[in-house]
Design a binder for these strands. Sequence first.
DNA 1: CTATGTCGGCGGAACGTTTAGCTAATCGTT
DNA 2: AACGATTAGCTAAACGTTCCGCCGACATAG
Lengths: 337, 337
Amino acid sequence: MATMKDVARLAGVSIATVSATVNRSAFVSPELRRRVGEAIHELGYAPDGIARSLKRGRTQLIGLIVADITNAFFTELVHVIEAAIQEAGYSVLLCDTDEDFAKERDYLKILRTHRVDGVILAPTGQPGDYAAFQSLEQRLPLVLVDRVLSELNADTVTVDNVAAAFEATAHLLDLGHREIASVTGPLHLTSAQDRLRGFRTALQQRGIAAREEFIRSGAFREEEAMAAALDLLKGPNRPSAIFVANNHMMIGVMRAISQLDLNCPRDVSIVGIDDFPWANAFKPRLTLVRQPVEEIGKTAVRMLLERRKDDAERPPVHHVLKPTLVVRDSCARFQAA
Amino acid sequence: MATMKDVARLAGVSIATVSATVNRSAFVSPELRRRVGEAIHELGYAPDGIARSLKRGRTQLIGLIVADITNAFFTELVHVIEAAIQEAGYSVLLCDTDEDFAKERDYLKILRTHRVDGVILAPTGQPGDYAAFQSLEQRLPLVLVDRVLSELNADTVTVDNVAAAFEATAHLLDLGHREIASVTGPLHLTSAQDRLRGFRTALQQRGIAAREEFIRSGAFREEEAMAAALDLLKGPNRPSAIFVANNHMMIGVMRAISQLDLNCPRDVSIVGIDDFPWANAFKPRLTLVRQPVEEIGKTAVRMLLERRKDDAERPPVHHVLKPTLVVRDSCARFQAA
DNA sequence: CTATGTCGGCGGAACGTTTAGCTAATCGTT
DNA sequence: AACGATTAGCTAAACGTTCCGCCGACATAG
């Protein structure tokens, strides 16, 4: 592979001139510019980003760590973040932790080795897991998305999960439901905590006691949600509505309903969090709380790049975005059986 | 950020010894190993992958270019490829072209600048677009997935799209359908071509003439598929079944059915290509041809890394994997209206 | 006691850039 | 005519590694 030296020799100039030409970093006479251009073309020269990174001290690489790319929310998030990063002249180093903190830690180390210029992280760890990081990650610019980690005082972008769950639950309450179940995520994640909190607050506010046996929390996974829903729905005094905290879980719940030959929304109303492409392509079209994914992604990228510029020890900023309820057909007015 | 020099100074050894210790590339006495280890720990040293890459001539980076990460097939593919690459000690540089060849070309250039060790590419270009590449891409190890590009004689991993479409169509024929429509992708992509071919072959084999007005080809997108399906289904002599060539299009078709208040499979039978998580969570549970995504991904990674080792000018190899029909509820036996 | 061999560890030259500082040439000013 | 100012382009020193070749110490053999 041709190097600047080859180009310089062929064009009869010094490598400094080649560099100046390639980077437009200094005036180069038209004549030399032409000769350099020709030599580059002839040799098929392309600058070596590695050498350049070494010298410049930055790589134009951003690490993106998500918990689970097959979750449609993260898919979409990766999509918009990738586009925004590319637009800004950087590239994405993708890491998928599969909700496994050990992997996440490994990835962080790898990203550090690759000398990425910054990291966008959707963390999976428990509080306490990150104690070592503050010092270890010698101020690598970091933005947290979707889930917060108070101990890691970094910039964050999240949606108001309490509000999301509150709205979803309030919608159910408005329709007359009282026996409402909740299938929610692992409670060490702030997103899951907040969603459960919003759910409880909505009930409380109407003076309705939450029935603890109707609250199921487990991993953000299809199988567990299906098991939970099956268990919830098979008994004689089943809830008339279920609030589902995540889209993987939604699949599980819908499959449970399908398997029990129940009809949604006639037999049970369902409301969830996270919109996704298929949500309105089937029966029933799902009523959901939509997160502003595009805004989350763009904001995260913007914050990261700003943080890079003036890496002053400016205190972290936290963006909290508003979710919106999208009403479709999966919730019906309550009627006694 | 601490460098080997710092470590060497603190441990009282040469940087060569630090390097040997870090890489286990030469025998280092236990005593020195201990001192170096301590110094590394104390300084929080981590090797600089950039300098290492420059010296070694490889980056442990693999470029992954997909046409559209929001397509569940590619989502899953990215998921398994990322895992396999990570497992092999490499990292993924993710590029999403949004089915735009101009972007694809830019990405290829960027990847080259980043000096990736290889590229896995799901191309979007038309034949002819890649003419310049052979020489330009100075033998960058390359594996094509999902879609082939004969002019780019690289290794490929695909599924037998002809067989996939054939099986799907045959299933419809077996159920007695005769007026079968096809909503298929852009015909400059081999995957779309092959799927249409399989569809035609199945009809032909039973001596049934394909009705050209029932064949719609457009971008692999939801909106266009919805428009096509709307048009196909609103007339009085509508097809009794539709073969849908891709999962984005499937969403569009299902939405059209929902909008027209038709019932699938009673009014129209649907079979598609590409399984996805939601396919059996709703009514109707979709009958689909499933691609062996995991095998595609793992094979692609394996081929790429092998190609790296002995970069002999060994001729390209082409893996063609078998799809399987998954019968669920979206196709019913034909009955005259 | 010297010659030979072994082996842990070191020095230093790369890898392909960027960039500070320099040189020689050209120019305008007095 | 002499002198600084300006300028195009060059030289060379980094950046943080890897790894070849060497050196000195020690062991063994003759």
